Amino acid sequence: MSSRMICLTLLLLFHWAPKPAEAQEHRTVAAGSSVLLTALPTNNTEHIQWEYIRSSTPENIMHYYRTGKEPVIAERYEGRVVFYSSNGSLLLKNVQVSDSGIYRATINLNKIDAKETVLKVIEPVSKPQLQINSTVVGSAVELSCEVPSGKVQAIDWKKDGKPLPRNRCYLLSESFNVLYIPEGQKSDCGSFSCNASNEISWQETSVNLTIEGITPPQKHALTISTVALAIAITLAAGSVLGFLVLCCQKENKKITGELWRWLVVSIHGLVCVSSTLMIIASVLWMREDGLSKVLTFYMILLMWVTMVTLLVSMILAICPLHLQMFKKKTSK
């Protein structure tokens, strides 16, 4: 192999060999900001050249000779760069996404020891916008997180400032920008936040989710309450009608004896059934909205009415003689 071929081979090896760590740098900055690009330090700098490499084609930015007075800046970069002759660094101002690429600083025309900075310019994310499609209990709820501008690399969801609870079925879309709640419940109410981020910025937006409407247990409670109310209205109407009948009847034709006893048993039985239904409805409602003082007092009152009416009905139906004994004792 000739000496000429050996020299060409060595040049190619030096050209394509990976640069040392100090000769390579990776920077990621936000669009609109300024970035300082540095060159390799050297004791004897006679000439320095900055280039921008786009698709393997170098584009001159500026070059500076120590013997000269001012750096020579390419027309395209006039007003956009500031050169510091003391250390050879270059300040690139108001960078845009199109400025991404490789910036190379060559000292004394030595291409092998040139420093390259791989610059990545990305748009910072803007503040996300949260939208809710439905707030009706039992329906499918979707929270959509839309970022108007900027490159989004990650989206994180939180509820009340904490990670999404695992005891509820929360589903996320493939891009994580939509949060699905298959069946919205009152327990899902709270503050949901969407955090959008990339390498250089992050933004967060929160929205309060309020699930409205009546849950299935509450619907059952309302149905039971309606039945109990119907029984109570029927009982009241029957009592008023019976009272009017008794008042209008003649003395010798008034209801007495066994018929009267079973009429009283029926009335107390209906009151007992109505109170029991109201207790069941209160329990169902309490499971959804929690326990309150008013509801506790209401349930205690209903339980007392239920026990009293049940006891009176049983005594009248099974052992009516006990009431006669009580009547005799009171008459004495």
Rank of each mutant, 00 (worst) to 15 (best):
L277R: 01
S173E: 13
L209D: 07
Q96E: 14
S85N: 10
Q249M: 13
C145P: 05
I231T: 04
L241T: 10
K151T: 11
C194F: 02
I132R: 05
T42H: 03
V72F: 07
P20G: 12
L323W: 10
E25L: 13
W157Y: 05
R287W: 07
V294K: 10
L263H: 05
I280N: 02
V97E: 14
A236D: 05
S89Q: 01
I48R: 02
K69H: 08
R54A: 06
S266T: 15
I255N: 07
Y170I: 03
V264N: 12
V35E: 09
H268T: 15
D289N: 15
V265H: 01
Y77K: 01
S331L: 12
G238E: 09
Q185L: 11
L222M: 09
Q131E: 14
D289Q: 11
L119P: 01
S85V: 08
V152G: 04
G257Y: 01
Q96A: 13
E59Q: 15
F297D: 13
N167Q: 14
G79Q: 07
Y298G: 06
S275P: 01
Y65K: 09
T205N: 09
Q218D: 13
M286A: 10
A237Q: 00
S282K: 04
I318S: 05
P165W: 07
L301W: 01
Y84L: 05
P71H: 02
T330Q: 03
E70C: 04
T309E: 06
L91P: 02
M303R: 01
R66Q: 10
V308C: 11
S225E: 05
I318A: 12
S274V: 05
I279G: 02
P41H: 11
L10W: 10
S33L: 06
H220N: 09
N87P: 00
H47A: 08
Q129T: 12
L301E: 14
K159H: 11
H26Y: 10
A114S: 15
S175E: 13
S206H: 04
V121M: 05
S126F: 00
A236F: 12
T226R: 09
W157G: 02
L259I: 08
E25Q: 15
D99T: 07
I279S: 02
E25P: 00
I107V: 15
G257E: 04
K219S: 09
T226H: 07
L37I: 03
K93D: 02
N198Q: 05
K293H: 06
D289Y: 09
R54Q: 13
V312L: 09
T106S: 07
E123K: 04
V125I: 04
V312F: 06
A221F: 01
I318V: 15
N133K: 08
V308S: 08
L244G: 13
G269M: 05
R80Q: 10
S34L: 03
I300C: 06
N108P: 03
I53S: 03
S144H: 11
A221D: 04
V265M: 04
T309M: 08
S313Q: 11
I61Q: 01
I267N: 11
I214K: 10
S175P: 00
T306F: 06
V240L: 14
I318F: 13
D113A: 12
P216S: 07
V207R: 10
C7K: 15
L284V: 05
H322V: 14
P58E: 07
K327L: 10
C247Y: 01
L172Y: 12
S201T: 08
V97Q: 11
G238T: 10
P165G: 09
E116C: 07
S201Y: 04
